[in-house]
Amino acid sequence: MIYILQNYWQALLYSDGYQMTGLAMTLWLLVISCAIGFCLALPLAIARNSKNPLIWGPVWLYGFIFRGTPLYVQLLLIYTGVYGLHFVHNTPPLADFFRSAINCTLLSFALNTGAYTTEIFYGAIRDTSFGEVEAGRAYGMSRFTLYRRIIIPSALRRALPMYSNEVILMLHATTLAFTATVPDILKVTNDAYVATYAPFDAFGLAALMYLCVSFSLIFMFKKAEQHFLAHLKS
């Protein structure tokens, strides 16, 4: 344990001297994929609530496919599968994009969390209370203003507890990046395991680090809930 800590503390926390690794990499993966997923989910959730089947149908299909298959399969498909296709191989911008492990990882994580987040926001928007929308209409708000001022702020607040769950699950899912050779915490500890053959020490250390990140995230979301959902407290 001491040996691993002495030799790998820097790589575990931020860098191995060449690139970003360990904790910094894990947090980077988490933040970027959740940010892209969020931006993707908001318009899709509104589209999912549309009455036109041509609009909600594709969004439903996207959710069905990405929530019905394991993230590992999606990652493999994007990382190893897409690059093997001929037209991707022969189109330089696409080939450059899909050659990089981190791009593929971020793409698959963002698409995956986007699907789950869409479903969360869809439920929250659908359950907006009738009176709020009616009051907004009575003020003569246009559809866009209604969404911007009334529906989306209220829905995002109500979705916060579910969304915090999704972010924690996404943190757990970032461990898959190590299968695509992205140097996150698990990759560094796996290297330590291979070097020392002490699985309990190496992976136990990783478990402790993830536990700390999980608890900090839970604490932050609790604070956010206290702030944004203060009006719901009895």
């Binding site: 461990t175 190590f178 395991y193 992976f203 993830y210």
Partner: peptide, 14 residues
């Protein structure tokens, strides 16, 4: 609180 892949490697090898 711990990712399942980490636990899986931890338990599987230990």
């Amino acid at each position: 609180g711990v990712p399942d892949l980490v636990l899986m490697l931890l338990i599987f090898y230990s």
